[in-house]
Amino acid sequence: MNKNKERIAVALMILATVVTIVSVFAIENFKRKQFYTVELIARSPLNGNWISRGKDGIWHPRKIYVPYGKEVKLYIRNIETVSHGFALPDFNLDPPINEIKAGEVVIVKFMADKKGAFPFFCTVWCSNEHMHMSGEIVVE
């Protein structure tokens, strides 16, 4: 009986399954901690419009709340089946983006160096309500 080989085989199984699942979510969690990370979901106004979640863990419809003076990493995730766009004219977005394709995630960074409320909106025709797909970033 090969006790050690059996142990290795079982270890590999656990590696392939449990460890993979845990690692995947752990890596993602770690990546999101390095900046002030905000998850922004792009949805057309027919499906709820923009909605964001920052460190407070609360979903804010059509609003993004970020702290003043921090570098913000925005994960813009398009969970729909059409393209959306994103523009935030009052800040410098890095990298400059135009289209977020269906199912895609686009990451933009910017420095929240102004206090106040600033508009953002979708820049790609996505639905009949496209003109109303907008929100506000609040820096405080």
């Binding site: 699942i21 995947v24 969970i79 729909e80 089946t81 394709k101 269906a102 199912g103």
Partner: peptide, 13 residues
């Protein structure tokens, strides 16, 4: 994992 997270978004990505 990808299937579960992907949900209803487009499949080609």
């Amino acid at each position: 994992i990808a299937g579960l997270i992907g949900g209803f978004s487009a499949g080609n990505y």
